[in-house]
């Protein structure tokens, strides 16, 4: 970048037409020439961005101000969808359920992944074991969900058979209101912890070993080293991991869709499930678009706050 921006100046200065020196036209011509080349290189990505992100986003925002059933034309109704959403108990329920899910999912996932990453870094050096941690992530989400759905089945699931064998009462993992969200969160922790651990593990490897040597020379204990060296230096990676996993966590859908479908009652009707229900179940695409826009704003805010307060773009190594 720097070479490109600095380039025109010496060229303009060394121009063969010093008498027209006060007009920077040749320089500008050169700049425009670069712009053309630059645009050419940006174009493929730009086409994809415009066609698949920008236009759908703008259209989604437009649709959120309409009543639209796909099989007709959208009719403009102003902010009616939004006022309806704020009075919609199911929306607030969906937000509460989603937050509960994100809290459980991210909390357990991050702590377990950090532990696994430390184990990978310090103890389990075999590629086989490190690879095995990734295995759940290699199975498709829906397959994982269905597999656990069957294993946790109330009547015939192996988990309940074991619980029963110990003489404890069976648990309706997906069927009871208390268990539905923790169960779904647990299934997704199981699938994603290996992958998240791998990301953190990469962060651990980027911490130079000399800081650990200095710490041990100073006689710092293991715990002290962890909190004063590892965690601060891992922060940029952890922030990135958190931003990515929190956004992913807010968008939980497939696990819910193939297991509880939002039930029992409304206990697992997460926001994406509610959007899907409104759009594809009740053909209310305008309302669903408005819900999507709200989710978009929330996620943008969450990402912004995380980057801002956890200083994800700075490293303590500098």
């Amino acid at each position: 970048m720097t070479t490109i921006t600095k380039l025109p100046d010496p060229v303009a200065g060394g121009s063969k037409h010093p008498q027209r020196g006060k007009t920077p036209r040749p320089g500008r011509g050169r700049r425009l020439g670069d712009l053309r080349i630059a645009l050419l290189f940006i174009l493929p990505a730009m086409v994809g961005f415009v066609a698949f992100f920008l236009i759908p986003t703008i259209r989604g925002i437009y649709l959120s101000f309409t009543e639209y059933s796909v099989l007709g034309d959208p009719t403009w109704i102003g902010t009616k969808n939004y006022t309806a959403i704020f009075a919609d108990e199911l929306f607030w329920n969906a937000m509460a359920v989603t937050l509960q899910y994100v809290g459980l999912n991210i909390g357990f996932q991050t702590v377990i992944a950090l532990g696994l990453a430390l184990l990978m870094h310090r103890v389990a050096k075999s590629t086989l074991i490190r690879g095995a941690l990734l295995l759940p992530f290699l199975v498709a989400n829906v397959i994982v969900a269905l597999l656990w759905f069957w294993m946790l089945d109330y009547q015939i699931g192996i988990v309940n058979e074991i619980i029963n064998w110990f003489g404890l009462p069976r648990i309706a993992f997906f069927g009871s209101e208390q268990w539905a969200i923790p169960t779904i969160a647990g299934v997704n922790v199981w699938r994603h912890m290996g992958y998240t651990a791998l990301l953190i593990f990469a962060g651990l490897q980027s911490i130079p070993s000399h800081v650990y040597e200095v710490a041990s020379l100073d006689g710092a204990s293991q715990t002290r080293t962890f909190w004063s060296i590892t965690m601060p230096l891992l922060r940029p990676v952890l922030v990135l991991v958190l931003v990515v996993t929190v956004i992913g966590s807010f968008q939980v859908f497939d696990t819910v869709a193939v297991t509880t479908g939002g039930g029992p009652i409304n206990a697992s009707r997460v926001i994406q499930m509610y959007i899907y229900q409104k759009a594809f179940g009740e053909s209310d695409f305008g309302y669903a678009s408005a819900l999507s826009v709200i989710l978009f704003v929330i996620l943008a805010l969450v990402a912004f706050i995380q980057m801002k307060f956890l200083k994800g773009n700075e490293s303590d190594l500098d």
């Binding site: 759905f149 089945d153 109330y154 009547q155 309706a172 997906f174 069927g175 009871s176 297991t259 029992p264």
Partner: peptide
């Protein structure tokens, strides 16, 4: 049976299983 036990279960299969 309780409603919570019906999630993912099949009415007919439970009948077939003598439940």
């Amino acid at each position: 049976p309780k409603l919570e036990t019906t999630v993912g279960a099949s009415l007919a299969d439970n009948f077939g299983a003598g439940k």
